[in-house]
Each structure stands twice: as structure tokens, then as C-alpha cells.
Write a protein that binds this DNA or RNA. Sequence first.
RNA 1: GGCGCGGUAGCCAAGUGGUAAGGCAAGGGUCUGCAAAACCCUUAUACGUCGGUUCAAUUCCGACCCGCGCCU
Length: 335
Amino acid sequence: MYNETHVPHSHTQTAAGVHPVAPDAPGAPLVSVAGPTGSGKSELALELAARFSGEIVNCDSLQVYRHFDIGSAKLPEAARRGVPHHLIDILDPGQIFTAGEYARLARETIADISAHGRLPIVAGGTGFYLRALLDGLFEGPSRDQSLRDRLAAREQRRRGSLHRLLSRFDSEAAAKIHPNDVPKVTRALEVCLLARRPVTELYRQGRDRLQGYRVLKFGLMPDREALNQRIDARCRGMFEGGLVEEVRAIQAMGYEAVKPFEALGYAQALQLIRGELNARDALFYAQRNTRRYAKRQITWLRREAAIEWLRGFGDDPEIQSQANRLVLEFLGLST
RNA sequence: GGCGCGGUAGCCAAGUGGUAAGGCAAGGGUCUGCAAAACCCUUAUACGUCGGUUCAAUUCCGACCCGCGCCU
């Protein structure tokens, strides 16, 4: 794939003003920066964007929400060095968002950026969103709240009933989903019922993969111990930097039981406010859960295909120059 | 100094004269429209030390060490 992009392009250096996107390329270039929380994705993405006249497309399921700034570690406007950031602050806290919608929006955004001759850089830690964007999802019905409500009620009456039901509609799907994993069982069932066909059959038709781009995927993979330390420090910084006040402010706007409040740090801050946790425990649980989250992200990333691994933090100059070199090569700008 | 209680894996903790639950933490994994979510799996050369009794001690006895509490 992008091994073929070693073909040196006419002019060499990335002097400012030179459009990095070769107009005759066999697909528009697209860069993505993934990695666990706290690995320095935003910093690396920003660095690359600044250097290659890129624009950043957020790929984080929490940063899409307005008002959730501190706990989602949004790069403050002032720190963005004039680089345009997309798909940040696009939703109200009460709105539900899905991977499918993300993929749609992100694809539009990327197309737009490319059309202007700039380099789209997708940055964020939500692996599922990235996969939905790049590999696509299967073509099928999207979520249906009223159906879900009915299914949930049924499951509540008899635990495991949804899984049993699913095995009648699609035994293959049922075999792959653990009965305790109600959300996934629900989705599979929802699809079967809405499409009147087994999900498995729909899966077989493939995903609606992103077309027309050449993709360079970075995976930041810092040392686990160092990452954990950063995570702990960052969580502490969030609490000390006004996370609880941020939550109070959001509550004051009338939001209480909204989805983003379930996120790491926010959940704990909320419990602290409600008196269900003391300050020490709130921090402790936020840190621990964030460390676990990072672990899950790493698990997800390991499975991702064709990743250029960067064994360190994205704000490390050494890592940044490694990434720079790879992007240069990728764009066909290396000498 | 005396008395009492305790000392089991990284932490908490049950328990038995025949080599020992569980929980937490940790690690690994799954993921096709709520994914910072949800779910699954795995783990240990662990019974303070030294002796004694016994076929056999983590379990009983003694001494010692350490911790906690109380007393003088």
C-alpha cells in the first residue's frame, strides 16, 4: 500500500506554502494518530499538522461533547497553534452519538479537508470510531430506541432471555456473544428484527470501507509503567484543575443523567458531588479506571492492521521526528 | 517489664492435624451504530522465625521476632 509511496515527488522539502498533497496521488493521503489515553496523541497530531499543513479531525467519543473540556483533555483553543480542529464540541451533552454517525461526519470532514489540498489528521483514542471511519460498518439498520426499550424490559423480566431469543434468530451470532453482554446481544437482536434477516448474513456482505484514500496509521505505544504514571498525574491534574467545578457547571445547565457523565473522571466527580465518594477515593477510582481504559485501548490497537508503531510518547521530540520522517516518506516528499 | 490480640500472595481476608476459600489489585482478550461503554478469561515458589509433639503442622506446644492495644 503505502510502501509504493516512496516514489520521490518532484519537489522535495516541505517548505511552507507547498501543498503536501500530491494532486496526482492514487488516493488522497490521510494520517491517523491513535494510542492509549495520555500517550500524547494530541501533541503529535498537532505537531504533524503544523508541519504538513494539516487539519485535525477528532476521533474521541467524549471530545465531541460541548462543555466536557477538562475531563476529556481537550486541547485548549490557545494551544492549538492555529491548526483547525474538527469534530470537537459538536454535540450537546444530552445527545446520543454513534460510531456510524461519527464515520459519516468524519468522512465528510476529511473529504472537505482534502479538497482544500490539506492533510487530514485523525486523532483520538476511540478505536471503534476509527474502525468505523476507516474500515466501515456493515450496512444495516441503525439503533431503534423504542425497540431497545422493549427488549430491555424483556431482559429485565428474565435474565438471559434476549440471548436465548437471539440464538433462535441467529445461532451463529449468539454463539459469538456472551449472554452477559447485554448491549451486544441487544444490538444483534435489533438488527435481526429490523432487517428480518440474521445479522451474520448482513455481516457477510462486508463493511463500507473508506474509499479513495491512502492511510498512514500511527500507534503510540509508550512503556506501560511510564504511561500509568502519566495517567495518574493527569487525573490528579484534572481534579485539581477544576473538573468538579466543570461538572457542577454542566449540571447547572440542566444536565444530569446524560451519557458523557458516565465517562472516566466525570462519573467519579459526580459521585463526589453526590457525596457517594470522598475526594481521595474519587481520584483513586478515576485513576484506576483510566489505567484500565488505557489497557483496553492497547488491546484494541494491537489488533489494528498496518500500524506504524511509535514506542514512546507523542510529545517526545524523538518520537515526533520519527513520525515526521514517516510522513515525509508517506507523502512522497522524502529525498 | 507484664498481659492480651494479631502476623496467610502486591493488598484485604477465610480456614483446616493430611500442603489453603474468596475479594481487591494486576495481566490477557472480545468488540460491525450508546465504545472513556459492556463483557469474558487468567494468575501466584502465600501460612513471621527457630525448635518440639505427631505417620503428618499453616493448624497443637514452646521460645523468639514484628505490629497493635491495654496495664504497671
